[in-house]
Design a protein around this nucleic acid. Sequence first.
RNA 1: GCCGGAGUGGCGGAACGGCAGACGCGGCGGUCUCAAAAACCGUUGUCGAAAGACGUGCGGGUUCAAAUCCCGCCUCCGGCACCA
Length: 857
Amino acid sequence: MKEYNPHEIEPRWQKVWEETQANKVNEDASKPKKYVLEMFPYPSGDIHMGHVRNYTIGDVIARYSKMQGFDVLHPMGWDAFGLPAENAAIKHNSHPATWTYNNIETQKASFKRMGFSYDWDRTVVACDPEYYRWGQWIFLQFWKRGLVERRNSPVNWCPNCKTVLANEQVTEGECWRCHGAVEKRDLTQWYFKITDYAQELLDDLDQLEGWPERVKQMQANWIGRSEGAEVDFILCDKEGNAPENPSEDDIITVFTTRADTLFGCSFFVLAPEYEGVADLVAGTDFEKDVMGLVEASAKVSAVERAQGDHEKHGAFTGRYVINPVNGEKVPIWVADYVVADYGTGAVMAVPCGDQRDFEFARKYDLPIIPIILGKDDPLFAELDGVSDRKVVQVDWENAYDAEGILVQSGKYTGLVGGKHSEGEAAIVADLEASGRGRRKVEYRLRDWLISRQRYWGNPIPAIYCDHCGLVPVPEEDLPVMLPKDIDLAAGETLATHEEFSKCTCPKCGAPAHRETDTMDTFTCSSWYYLRYTDPHNTELPFDPEKANRWMPVDQYIGGIEHAILHLLYSRFFTKVFRDMGMLTYDEPFSNLLCQGMVKDENGETMSKSKGNVIAPEDMIAEYGADAVRAYILFMAPPDKDLLWDEGGLAGIYKFMNRVWRIVYDLAGQADENTLFQKDASEKEIEKAFKTLVRERHRVVGKVIEDFDRNNFNTAIAAIMELANAASDYLHKASADMRKADATKTAFDAELATVLVELLAPIAPHWAEELWTTVLGHEGSVHEQPWPDFDPEKAKDDEVELAVQVNGKVKARITVAADAAEEAIREQALEAVAGATDGKTIAKVIVIPGRLVNIVAK
RNA sequence: GCCGGAGUGGCGGAACGGCAGACGCGGCGGUCUCAAAAACCGUUGUCGAAAGACGUGCGGGUUCAAAUCCCGCCUCCGGCACCA
């Protein structure tokens, strides 16, 4: 017998697979397709255990699917544009491309050492002009469809990364990449109008049955749909008089979900960034205070805003608006607790029903008028049914924001108030009738800011011409090539790179200059899965026919950190391609698996600074790739965090060795006494054999069930049970004894085959070696059909049942598998006669194959 | 604050409402060995000598039967957050 030596067999088989193009995609239309995809990596150095986990899961699914008879697409590529490459280039005085391509080679070599079954002919590298030209093409199509906008607005600016960021890339006021504090700036930038798809992106979450609930929830929260109404307030002049014939300029509109509380509006608030604040107070006594507040709040960083204690600051403008429901004059304040870019940036304040307004009213001593009360409120008896204003101040601790009864609310008094209440509906209906309000749905989702002031990205294909204005680069001129000669260390940028920025206007031919911003790297990752379906196309980003055959991705695997970012953007791109007629699907990823993190033995995240990183290469060097793969699948369900435990890895390595010896023994090639220990009695041998045959069928069924639900840990546990049954049998029955019995000889061969096939997706090199060298089969194990099983043979002819008395197990009985209920009942009653002595049997519940419960009193 | 998810032996984790703890790690005892490693066998929830009792975060409930379903809490993890 040859010892199991992963270091010898793994490189050997990797070479063979490469030579035989074992992982090439077949494009065999006679088979059902399966697209298995793992999120492509960013090439920052070598791979870590998180990658190993992510890609092992994908590889097992891909290999298993292939054996199940699917035509499998399982590609890999690199998300290769981005800031780390640029930073590394500046640090080492080299070029981002050098760093990027070196890392790609390193990672690719590691992937091959892990035995991942990618078709390398389909590799997509995002910084390759053959790829990014299509990113530019897509940009132009979006532009044609009105989905591209260049506009000025307050944006997130990361001073550290020296670029703007999308909303999705700011977490608690920090940059997603460098974790530095983000600032607000007013800049003109490029946007993709993802908000045009807000409703559909929300609605179609329902289609995604194969997605984790938490990811769908996160996206729904991010989109943040809110139903309410816009209400128009009329602005009084500086003397406080309402205009007789108000024009559009005299209207300030608010968005509210609580129009039912309009009668409790005791002040009105504008965000400091609200356009026109300066005009409101220009030349008045209030100008100084108000503009001071505006300046002060502009200085507050996004981090402070996000993490601060939310102390509210405000200033009165000296101006008033008219409340449309009761004609009341309401003072206008400017306050930093109003979000400028949500709704209209102006809100009606109802301190009795909104905690923020309440706190503000307390601080600045503004009226808190009770207009909605719970029935158990002490004030309710006094105000129930009172429609005119009677009480104008309360001494509550907090606002009342639950459902209640409207009081002091004119004709609406007595109606139920609250979100989506009858009171709200009645008031909005009247506002609509009088033209002072309208139904409105707001979203938290903002348009996607896609321009970046960085070099290492995909150039935005746009030209500025003094005569023609903003002009798209004609499609035939694509790609706009990123210039190679750039001295980043010396501070050169695309904007200062004259050769790049200078051009002629495609419309009029006059001298013009290019846009020098590049696109967010997330634009690259929003469609790479489509390029894989047709990676060498030179006419289009992909052939719709090919994409429609392979799409949607049947199983997508990646980290939870993309729950919003990449997964939302990709859904958006897919919907646009569908509307362009290039895709027939609404959603790109049918099933999503978010793998848990790999942590150290204390549950801490692995990081270089903590010095607790386990390098995949070290583990491969010690135990081989197959053991690492099996270990990572076995130690935890895929969506849970995995705590690294080398003892567990050693255990799996032991298991691989054990099955290795079992297969040798079953193949009749074991050394003397490898497993065999003693001739057991014929009865014992027959029993062990019967059990083993049963296990062979049961376990194959169980592994299929588990693989189909991505329960790799229990699938491996089941294979271990089969190995245990085989081991028990082989200890008892000698090779000679088995050879003398044709049934047993045949079963030995069958079992060896099944064991190797079951483990093939998990330990591909191990399986291939045993398949060819030991079992002597032709071809690759990975080309074999998945083993079959007979559920009938998985059943025992006798079963043990637990016998309970009042739910407590008191005895066990063995009955024939097909025993009649009446017979089981009798046997059970007899078995627990002692425990039921002197009691009345009230009921006997027989659950065939499981237990008997006797209710005795 | 709002929205998700999770709490099971010493540890990782199993359990269509039906024998809690599969499988593995670790521990203990043994076989082999001069010895050790490897390999193999047995054992291992807690208390108890045993019979037995108790056990799935806490408190209730439904059920013949609850880790699982319902109600009310606690703790931890994740997301969002001054979004009107």
